[in-house]
Amino acid sequence: MPSRGLPYLLLLPATVFLAVFFLYPFTQIAWEAFSGPGGVTLSHFATMVNYWKFPAALENTLLLAVAVVPLQTAMALAMAVLVSKLEKGRDLILYIFTIPLGISDLAAGLIWFAIFQQTGFLNSALHALGVVHTPVIWLGYQSKWVIFLAVMLAEIWRATAIMLVIIVAGMGLIPKEYGEAAEVFGAGPWQRFRRVTLPLLRPSLQTALILRTILAFEVFAEVAALGGTNLPVLMGETFHWQFDLQDGHTAAAFAIVILAISIGFTLLYLRLLRVPKGAGI
């Protein structure tokens, strides 16, 4: 049945919504970040860069992403391969593996706080094993690297599931025959994974990496729950400037930095993992 106008009518609500609540606010962030009393200015960026916590926040955010994302990718790939090897109980194992997908970063932070806090489960376990006699303060301000490690663990624990789901879904799209053909041609399990599965998985891997890396730059609640203000990160400082210092301009400058890193990495992934035309499944 011909209906030229219908698709536009159906897209209208979502388009208007995204224009008002997605495109427009981002122009506003840029406006806030670059505007001052006398017109366009970089003074808010100067304020941000001169803020004593800025270098540490930038460094921590990037380091966390660099430490977490590759580990998660490897783990998600390994988990996906393991699951594909299971003969029974596949659905149950997949459900268990994906549970963290439903858990908020704040809850994940609280969960790992229960482990690392002074009277927590880590100290209790060490105590039971006789390694320590009095509880150790793991998350104090002098032990920045333990906080870093705890945040890393919490991030890996919580957010590997999202990569796993994308990768498992992607593997489901790869016909079994390709692996079997490779096996007939003499490829071992590792070679099959390396030469058949991985290249065909590129689109999924790309999505998973983009999504996960951007989320890694947004790390916030876990850090707040585990380290308080002892481990500054960009998103946390954005919140601090917006909420505690009531300085929307500098908060927007932080936001622009996060945005720039996110877009930069997205473009990088798109370029590195692009699939040649016609080489997809």
Partner: peptide
């Protein structure tokens, strides 16, 4: 939208 840290929208909004 996936390439943007969406919670930041809260600032201008």
């Amino acid at each position: 939208t996936r390439a943007f840290p969406l919670p930041l929208l809260a600032l201008p909004l």
